[in-house]
Design a protein around this nucleic acid. Structure first.
Lengths: 152, 152
DNA sequence: AGGATCGCGGGAATTGTTCCCGTTTTCAAG
DNA sequence: CTTGAAAACGGGAACAATTCCCGCGATCCT
């Protein structure tokens, strides 16, 4: 939790939508010299507020047309089951998010695959790696929103 | 869906984890001149495979410590309900993802907020904007995985 | 009011990007 | 095989952006 002023927040708001702008352009937009902006950006990177700069790819163009959520209840509630589950999800690149939850479902997985057939392979691969008591999968028909931009 | 060779995929794999590398460095890693790499990256941008370059922020450092999922069943199943729902989620910056689903739950929302109190405000704000028949919210205790990197 | 601190902008060196051009590789047809 | 066309490569150079140094002005604290 860092102390950020209004200008820092405007910089973050812009960069988390488009990090390809030059410092010159960025400075122009917020009314500061390329230079002042550079110092602020560097500070935000060093403090870890800016965690990374990445390229976002288009899943459709990569043939990954289907988003799937898997609602999971665990077989056994032990530390080493959790450890195994964590490793399994980390090692499976189709899995984009894995969450331990409150409520009656224990875990939630968000994954991106080519199609239903590919999902079935993912499913079988997952249950081979870690025992699951109950799994209910839902396909996403439409993503009405999907962003990496946090509220600043 | 584009035709990508092995080198393109290696470039994408690197850039979707770290887009701050220079063309020189990138070329070195994959055994090509800065120049050949530049042409490939440009082609990937123009074809839309690379959708954007963005900065990823640390939610904890911004005081957004809580991820929430909301499982929703709709009040009415009409085009203009969907339209209203879509606009509502678009306009609420805490909502990072909104998905129309198969199965017995109609919609799923992924959101990031400061704490339970902030979630309650989000919840009340949402039900004020669009009528929901049934909402069940779960908090994320632990994110064992969370990535923007797609399998290439 | 004086002194210290902080953030700003200008300038300049360094580094990175972009584009041109000649060469090499690949691939298909003869 | 050999040959010709097309595609991809690397080197060089111009241009652009980044990075860092410095001096100035605003702000704050006593």
């Amino acid at each position: 939790m860092e102390k950020l002023d209004h200008i820092d927040r405007r910089i973050l708001a812009i960069l988390q939508r488009d990090a390809s702008l030059s410092l010159e352009d960025l400075g122009e937009r917020i009314g500061l010299s390329r230079n002042a902006v550079w110092r602020r950006v560097r500070a935000l990177e060093e403090s870890g507020v800016i965690r990374a700069r990445v390229a976002l790819l288009d899943p459709e163009k990569l043939g990954l047309g289907l988003t799937v959520f898997m609602m999971i209840r665990a077989e056994r509630h032990t530390p080493d089951w959790l450890e195994k589950f964590t490793r399994a999800t980390r090692d499976m690149p189709e899995i984009l998010g894995a969450y331990r939850m409150t409520g009656d479902l224990d875990y939630l997985i968000r994954a991106r695959v080519a199609d239903v057939k590919a999902f079935d392979r993912l499913y079988k691969d997952l249950i081979a790696r870690v025992e699951l008591h109950d799994v209910s999968s839902s396909f996403v028909m439409e993503e009405t929103k999907e962003t990496t931009a946090l509220p600043v």
